[in-house]
Design a binder for these strands. Structure first.
Lengths: 207, 207
DNA sequence: TAGTCAAGCAAGCACTTGCTTGGTAAGATC
DNA sequence: GATCTTACCAAGCAAGTGCTTGCTTGACTA
């Protein structure tokens, strides 16, 4: 209600067509959906919520996506691709394992906690179960590939003697410690992702 | 459908009143709700799902609970009380800090991953945001009290020299590593909570 | 100038949702 | 034996739910 006057009888300019800003309307939907999925969860978020957030009517998102699940799929795949890309960069650097490890931690946490990626990352981590089986398989495949980056650096750290155990269990503990930050991190609080990464490295590695 | 014959015209015994089994119908609802909340999430679980699971009609749970949220509140508070009680016991033992720590890890993981508590624990960890503000505050209060148990043992471990940093950050990493197990633990897999606890202790503590 | 197309809107359909209401059968209590 | 209480059920209401349909409009194109 009070949303749109059906036909503004006097208005001359027929809507300023707010150009520039952001090209793609579809990606606006994805961003809005990501934020809402993080804030309220997939099931509690309605198509109407998403449409409202980008100033559409409730039927219009279905021009861009064939279903609500399709939106979720897009957000989740977007999320893991973002994390992977962010971490692959420091992982490919030629720093010493320890410094490389810390840079990877920082990259992962920057996505999870930063304004850019935290919506899609949280959606990926907490709402993937609402995907259909096929999409879930795809997420798992990409996640396994991503964790391969970590397994590799853990192995090097063991070779270096900074780590005594580079088993899958160690990797899972590491993922847990990192991904759980979304549950307690406060954006107004003092600690930066960088500092958190450093502390985590210090906890896990011995010198 | 095919659920209950309205009035069995010939049946003599008017329903065997399946005694014994489990006293309280209300707690059956809580258990069923916990399982469903873990499997599908709070929002995706309907009152009809919960009622079906204990063979009631969809209006009947409202005799025991005043709203769907009230069920969630009960499950969540039940969850944290269960974890707290399970960990408080080893925490109060007079073992050496290191052994005590490992016993606490085991206790926490036994609740999270065991058949008894994993439903309510998962609900607590992942669905608390759907509580109203008041209930959320109560959960946070209890959670802070619970984490106090951990902060205390971390402090002792530092005194003992097994840990270099007993800050809140260390505790949060620890909670993350533990609570994230629910995301990957397989009940058919080889590792027991006990073994996982031991490995985690080995990763965090130095000898 | 007519035709095409991308990007939406208005309306609404079929269904689901949490929850309420009036009733009722079996015990417990007086 | 009359009343009260417990624990439900049958029915349904009002508000949503995902999604579809037919249409419009402004920008481009032949």
């Amino acid at each position: 209600m009070a949303r749109v006057v059906k036909k503004a009888p006097v208005s001359v300019s027929p809507e300023p067509t707010f150009q520039g800003e952001e090209t793609n309307r579809r990606s606006e939907l994805v961003r809005a959906a990501g934020r809402l999925f993080r804030e309220k969860g997939y099931s509690a978020t309605t198509i109407r919520d998403i449409a409202d957030a980008v100033n559409m009517r409730s039927g219009s998102p279905f021009y861009h996506f064939k279903s609500k699940q399709d939106i979720l799929r897009t957000v989740a795949l977007d999320g893991i691709a973002t994390i992977h890309a962010a971490v692959a960069k420091p992982a490919a650097s030629n720093k010493a394992p320890r410094a490389r490890f810390e840079a990877m931690l920082t990259a992962h946490l920057n996505v999870l906690l930063g304004d850019e990626g935290r919506d899609i990352a949280a959606t990926l981590l907490h709402e993937s179960r609402h995907l259909d089986a096929e999409a879930q398989d795809e997420v798992i495949r990409l996640k396994d590939a991503y964790e391969g980056l970590w397994q590799a650096v853990l192995k090097e750290l063991k070779t270096d003697g900074a780590l005594t155990d580079d088993s899958a269990l160690t990797r899972l503990f590491l993922m847990g410690a990192m991904n759980w930050t979304t549950q307690w991190y406060r954006h107004d609080g003092g600690r930066s992702p960088r500092q958190i990464a450093r502390q985590l490295a210090k906890l896990l590695l011995r010198d």
